[in-house]
Design a protein around this nucleic acid. Structure first.
Lengths: 356, 356
DNA sequence: ATGAAAGCGCTAACAA
DNA sequence: TTGTTAGCGCTTTCAT
C-alpha cells in the first residue's frame, strides 16, 4: 500500500500535481519543472518530459491558482476597479490592457465598485493580495486612502485620470484641460459667444486641471466673459445631461452651444434639445467628450474630444508590469493627448470657419 | 532570541496572521478564530479578543487571499465571463449580482473574454479554481467544451441565455421567443405587413428558441408570409444594424418596419433611416430588444423589449450560491419573462391600434 | 537527471 | 480558554 493519499481527482476535485506525478511515475518537482517550461533549459530527459505532458493532458491537469499564488507571492492578475460598467468608455481600455497583459503572462479582471465616500467595496480582495496590480478609475475610488496602504505593501497601483499626491501611486491620464480648450475653442471659432459647460460635480477643484479649466482658458483667450450661470453641474448620466440642458434653456439669455462633460451626457443634451424643438447644430451646438462609438450614431453625429483609449490600456499595463517586476519606475505620471473629432453636432464641416 | 522568523511586515510585505499573533501575544489560531467571528460562539475571552482586534487594526492586517483560498478550498469569488464590456447590457445584471453576492459573503468580478471558437481566454484562471462559481455569457463562451469539465470538477457554472445539454450547467435566461413574438405582434397590430428582422448570426438554430422564432410565430398567427429576404444577418453592433437597414432599403419591396436583435443594433438602424431621409415612425418603425437606458434618448425614443436585468443578476447569484453550498439544485433552468416597452419608434402611443 | 523536503499564510482538529 | 500541529497544492533549493 504505497498510496499514502487518495488521489484528489478521485475525490471529485481537480487533479493535483501529485496526481500527475503518480500517473507519470515521477515526483511532483518534475511535474512543476516540465509544466513551467524549465525542463529544456535545466534538465529532465525528453522521455520523462513527454510522459509528464501526456499524464497531465490525460488528467486535464491545471495548476491550482491559490497554491501557486501563495507559493510565488504573485497572482499574475491585474484588476481594474471601475465605478460602473454602464459607460462603455472603459471597454476599449480594458481590451487593450488585456492584450498587453497577456503578452507578459498576466490576466486581467474587472471589479465593479461604485465606492461611496468612506466605503471601498472589494477592499478585502485588494488588500488580501489577490492581485499583483490594480488600476483604479473614478474619482471616489481614486481618493480612497486605502490605496496608499496597498501601494506601501508592494501592490502596484495606477490611478486613471487622477494624480495622487503620493508618488507610490502611478497615474495615466488624458489631458482633460487641453480637451476642454479644444472643445471650447472649436465652438468659439464657429461663432458662438454664449457657451455653456455641463459638468459633473468635482470634489477637489484645485488638485487637477479638468475640462472646465480648458473651457475657461479658451474663453479668456477669446476675450469672452465667463458667465457662472453657464456652468452647470449635474449627475453623470444621459439623464443628467438632459436635465442640465433643459435648465439652460430656461435662461432668458440662452447659450447657443454647450460643451458636455462626456458623450453620455451629450446624448442626453441632444435629446433635450430635440424635445424642445431646437435643431442641432443650427439652433444649438453640442460637443461631447470621450469619443465613444455611440457618437457616430446620434442625431446628429456627435462632435467630440477623442481619447486614445487603446493607448491608455496599453500604457497602464506597461506601467503596472514595470512596477511589479522592476520595483519602481522613472516616470510616474503619463499624460496622453486628446484630439478634436469633428462630426456634425456643431456644424462647421462643409463650411469650416477655421481660425486663420 | 525567540524571534524565529522575521516579521513579514518588516520585510515590506503585508502583515501575516503570525505578525498579529506575535504583537498580541497569542497564537495564530486565536487570530483566526477571533477574526472570523468564531470567537464569541466558541470560546476566547473578551480580553484576548480585544487585544487581537486591536493588534490586527494596528498592523492593518488583512488575511491573505491565496492562503485562505488554498486552505478552505474556496475563494468566495464569483466571476462573470463576458464577451465584451462595450454593451452596457450586463451592467445592471452585474450590479444586482454584486449586491446579492455580498449578502452571502461572496465578491464578484468580471473577466472580459471574447472567445473565438477554439480558444477560451481566461481559461487557466477558471480551471485553476480561482473562482467558486462562474457565470458565462455570450454564445461562443457558453459553447466552450471546457465548461463541462469545470462543472465536473465542482465549480458551479451558470450560462446566461444558453441552455446547456448537460444538466451540470445551470441556466438563467430571458424568454427570447416571447420577446420576438411581442415585438413582431406589436408591429403587426400597428398595421405593418412587411416586417424585417435583423439578427446576429446564430450558430445552432435548433438548440434554443430565439427572437426569430417568436417573429415567425407572430407572422404565422397573423397569416403573414415569411419572406426570407426580410431576415438579415449582420454583425452585432450599431454599425451592423446600420448596414443591415441600408441593405433592406435597397429592396424594391421595402419593409415598413424592422425588429432589431438588440438596442445597439436598433440605434444603428435609426441612424441609417435618418441618413436616408426616412422618418421614424411615420415612414418606418423600429423595435429594439434589451431595454437599455440609452433607448430613452434616441431619436425617437426606442420601443423595445425590456429584460428584467436586476432579477437576472439576483437569480444567477442565488443559483450559483445554492449550487456551491448545497451541491445540487432542483431547478436547473430559469426562464424569465420580458415585456414590451412602448416608446416612440413605432408610433402607437397616442392613437393605439390595439388588438381587440 | 530526478527526488526529498521545506514552506508560502491560513484554518481546523485535537491537545492541554 | 488557548496553543500545537497538520496540512491545502504548489515551487524551489539542495541532495543524490
Amino acid at each position: 500500500m504505497d498510496q499514502r493519499k487518495a488521489s484528489n481527482a478521485k475525490r471529485g476535485g481537480a487533479p493535483t500535481s501529485a496526481d500527475v506525478a503518480r500517473l507519470a511515475g515521477v515526483s511532483q518537482a518534475t511535474i512543476s519543472l516540465v509544466l513551467n517550461g524549465r525542463a529544456s533549459k535545466v534538465r529532465i530527459s525528453e522521455e520523462t518530459r513527454k510522459r509528464v505532458i501526456s499524464a497531465a493532458a490525460q488528467l486535464g491537469y491545471t495548476p491550482n491558482h491559490a497554491a501557486r499564488s501563495l507559493r510565488q507571492r504573485s497572482t499574475k492578475i491585474i484588476t481594474f476597479v471601475l465605478p460602473t460598467l454602464e459607460n462603455p468608455y472603459y471597454s476599449d481600455i480594458v481590451s487593450a490592457a488585456q492584450i498587453a497583459a497577456q503578452q507578459h503572462g498576466y490576466a486581467v479582471s474587472v471589479i465593479p465598485a461604485r465606492t461611496k465616500p468612506g466605503e471601498f467595496h472589494a477592499l478585502s480582495l485588494l488588500q488580501g493580495a489577490a492581485f499583483d496590480g490594480i488600476v483604479v478609475a473614478g474619482r471616489e475610488n481614486c481618493a480612497a486612502p486605502e490605496l496608499l496602504q496597498l501601494a506601501a505593501r508592494g501592490v502596484a497601483v495606477v490611478a486613471l485620470q487622477e494624480r495622487s499626491p503620493d508618488p507610490s501611486i502611478y497615474s495615466v491620464s488624458v489631458d482633460l484641460e487641453a480637451g476642454g480648450y479644444l472643445a471650447t475653442r472649436h465652438l468659439i471659432e464657429l461663432g458662438h459667444r454664449r457657451i455653456a459647460h455641463v459638468m459633473e460635480e468635482l470634489p477637489r477643484p484645485d488638485t487637477w486641471r479638468d475640462r472646465v479649466d480648458g473651457y475657461r482658458r479658451a474663453l479668456a483667450e477669446a476675450g469672452l466673459p465667463l458667465d457662472p450661470s453657464l456652468v452647470v453641474i449635474t449627475e453623470n448620466s444621459m439623464a443628467g445631461g438632459c436635465k442640465a440642458i433643459e435648465q439652460l434653456l430656461l435662461d432668458r439669455q440662452r447659450p447657443t452651444a454647450a460643451f458636455m462633460y462626456n458623450d453620455q451626457m451629450a446624448v442626453g443634451a441632444l435629446h433635450a434639445l430635440r424635445t424642445h424643438g431646437l435643431r442641432v447644430p443650427d439652433d444649438f451646438a453640442v460637443v461631447g467628450f470621450d469619443g465613444l462609438a455611440m457618437g457616430q450614431f446620434t442625431a446628429p453625429p456627435l462632435t467630440t474630444i477623442d481619447h486614445p483609449r487603446r493607448d491608455i490600456g496599453r500604457i497602464v499595463i506597461e506601467t503596472l508590469i514595470g512596477a511589479i517586476e522592476k520595483g519602481s519606475l522613472e516616470v510616474k505620471q503619463h499624460l496622453l493627448p486628446v484630439k478634436l473629432l469633428v462630426r456634425e453636432s456643431c456644424g462647421g464641416l462643409e463650411a469650416p470657419n477655421q481660425k486663420p
